[in-house]
Nucleic acid binder design. Structure first.
Length: 487
DNA sequence: TAGGATTGCAA
DNA sequence: TATTGCAATCCTA
């Protein structure tokens, strides 16, 4: 294996993604039984500046990094594994893409955030006042414990869900109470607004520099599922559920006048992968004809003439259920239907897509034999507890076995897309930039004269990541500005 | 001051 | 009684 650049840590991560906090120190210890000198040791646990450390210690400290890395690299060269291909084809090329994204930064209109902050502040004050008036007492609404005292001891509202130490006052509980007690609704709203204000607006404002640019860090070796994660800020959980969330998203703007923010996201990748992997004729045909898959499932579950958008939502949840192997109970809770109904829909799903059921059962069976499952790109995930006698452990292992080949293949698909998109933009010297990745979505800042060509080509690249397969993937283009109305 | 517990946002 | 993350706040040790 010859590469222009290489990463020994990624090599380890590909094989063991569930090990938290991988480090060179740990690898040295594991592979060569060697203890590396720590930063604390050479600075004598004092907060010494590195330049004050004696030369000898500094030399050893530096030498170790190079030496151990080289030992690891040499070891990898000798050790051919099936994971090599993933490293060379996906993980290593991705480094450059992410590097570029991090260097380019994201442009955020700070003034707009400040304006939303004020808006929320008003709303929060109003709610706070109203809540205090209602209970004739002031307390800290942000404290679950104090909310608990007020709701259950002072107002003696019905309690039903427990946490480790007391009765829960989370959104589920409050939501139930809100039917009868308006104060619960007020607390829900209060939490929602304070959440947006502190976690998103204040946090973003803190990280924005004087030029309204924000620098996020993408982490390539932390998740147990080989997905990316991002920190400072985490761009992958920016809200999108209501109008105020979209006000926040609107603050993500182009860096230049006339440029535009465009997002392209994969549509139902997981269900498409389910179709490909299970070879279910009904599913494949539905996708070939570009049908709305959730509507299609609804047609199997309900009489055709009764299908409404709410029925489609149920069907969507059922499709979702299969991929995640959730219990009937989970499904019923998620979409507020009875367990009996949930059970019925799921059986209907299996009747309609018989090969899917076969595929899911075979996946579990094969995992029981081999103790691992594989993704479309041949990543292996060992699930040794698949044969555990404990039913709870066994079923959680089964869920993982079902979920992993599908969801984790989609992580690779977007990584491959990013690499190809990067090469495309570079090859033709386009000015437009890839600025964000949110799991199944890529966000671009586009130069006006390139917009048409970018849209067409990038969508094409994304849809054709899987070659020689029965169906294509689908990627939708959204213009950031109009997204609010579209969703 | 550190870290557990609780909560909630995204895909 | 789905998973993976990041982060805020409260509150105890």
């Amino acid at each position: 294996m010859v590469a222009k650049y290489y990463d020994t840590l990624l090599w380890e991560y590909i094989k063991n993604p569930w090990v938290r906090w991988l480090s060179l120190d740990k690898l040295a210890n594991k592979e060569f039984d060697y203890d590396m000198i720590s930063y604390d040791e050479i600075t004598n646990k004092k907060k010494l500046n590195f330049k004050d450390v004696d030369l000898e210690s500094a030399a050893i400290y530096s030498w170790e990094d190079v030496y151990i890395t080289n030992l690891l690299y040499t070891k990898h060269l000798k050790e051919k594994t099936t994971e090599d291909k993933i490293l060379i084809d996906i993980e290593i090329p991705l480094i450059k893409v992410l590097q570029k994204m991090e260097i380019d930064w994201v442009f955020i209109e700070a003034d707009r955030l400040k304006w939303i902050w004020l808006l929320l502040e008003n709303e929060i004050n109003r709610l706070e006042k109203s809540i205090f008036e209602e209970v004739e007492e002031e307390f800290n609404i942000k404290s679950p414990k104090q909310v608990w005292v007020i709701l259950f001891e002072k107002l003696t509202l019905p309690k039903w869900k427990k946490t480790k130490t007391w009765y829960s006052v989370n959104a589920d509980v409050l939501w139930e109470l809100a039917h009868e007690y308006p104060i619960a609704q007020k607390i829900i709203d209060y939490r929602h607004y304070t959440k947006l204000q502190s976690t998103y607006i204040e946090w973003l404002l803190e990280l924005i520099d004087n030029n309204w640019l924000v620098h996020t860090s993408y982490n390539v070796a932390v998740t147990a599922t080989w997905r990316l994660s991002s920190t400072s800020p985490n761009l992958q959980n920016i809200p999108s559920s209501d109008w105020i969330a979209w006000e926040i998203r609107d603050a993500f703007i182009s860096r230049f006048k006339w440029w535009r923010i465009i997002a392209i996201d994969y549509s139902q990748v997981e269900v498409r992968l389910l179709a490909l992997m299970s070879w279910d004729g009904w599913l494949i045909n539905a996708f070939k004809k570009w049908l709305d898959i959730h509507h299609k499932t609804a047609e199997f579950i309900f009489p055709w003439e009764t299908i409404t958008s709410s029925k489609r939502k149920i069907a969507k949840a059922v499709n979702f259920w299969v991929i995640y192997w959730i219990s009937w109970f989970g499904l019923s809770k998620m979409i507020w239907i009875s367990v009996k109904e949930a059970n019925l829909y799921i059986n209907k799903f299996y009747e309609s897509y018989p090969k899917v059921k076969e595929f899911l059962e075979n996946t579990i069976k094969s995992c029981e034999e081999k103790q691992y499952v594989e993704t479309l790109f041949w990543r292996k995930r060992y699930i040794k507890w698949i044969n555990d006698s404990n039913k709870i452990i066994k079923s959680s292992a089964e869920r993982e076995a079902i979920n992993m080949p599908i969801q984790w293949t989609s992580a690779d698909i977007i990584k491959l897309a990013m690499i190809k998109v990067y090469n495309f933009l570079k090859q033709w010297n386009y000015k437009s930039k890839l600025i964000m990745q949110v799991h199944d979505e890529l966000v671009f800042d586009t130069y006006p004269w390139e917009e048409t060509i970018i849209k067409k080509n990038i969508q094409n690249i994304m849809e054709n990541i899987l070659v020689n397969k029965k169906i294509k993937l689908k990627a939708d283009i959204w213009e950031w500005k109009t997204w609010k109305e579209a969703k």
